[in-house]
């Protein structure tokens, strides 16, 4: 299973704090890229594509920033979030 978390404005706009998925339910491989995961999420929720495309977002896997060609495996925690605004 992979855990997907959304933060801040992105979470509010998607109206979804987090969800869990099985990679095997997405395709028959053991890994998928972040791109493939996003494609799958957009198929499940067509209105999400516009929300992701509207603004810049970052992806972290197991709390490290990654590019969207990063391979995801079972047990990973994937976070999507807007540009940060602390300080």
């Amino acid at each position: 299973m992979i855990k997907i978390i959304f933060f801040a404005r992105l979470r509010d706009e998607l109206n979804c704090p987090e969800l869990n998925l099985e990679i095997k339910d997405i395709n028959n491989k053991k890994t998928i890229t972040v791109y493939e995961l996003l494609d799958h999420l957009f198929k499940l929720n067509p209105q999400w594509q516009d929300i992701f495309n509207k603004r810049k977002f970052f992806t972290a896997v197991n709390q490290e920033i990654v590019q969207n060609n990063h391979d995801l495996s079972d047990g990973d925690e994937i976070a999507f979030f807007p540009p940060v605004t602390g300080g």
């Binding site: 801040a8 404005r9 807007p82 940060v84 605004t85 602390g86 300080g87």
Partner: peptide, 14 residues
């Protein structure tokens, strides 16, 4: 540290 915190540390302000 402040310049990097503003860009890299995952905080979001409302």
């Amino acid at each position: 540290i402040m310049d990097y915190l503003k860009n890299d540390a995952p905080f979001w302000k409302k």
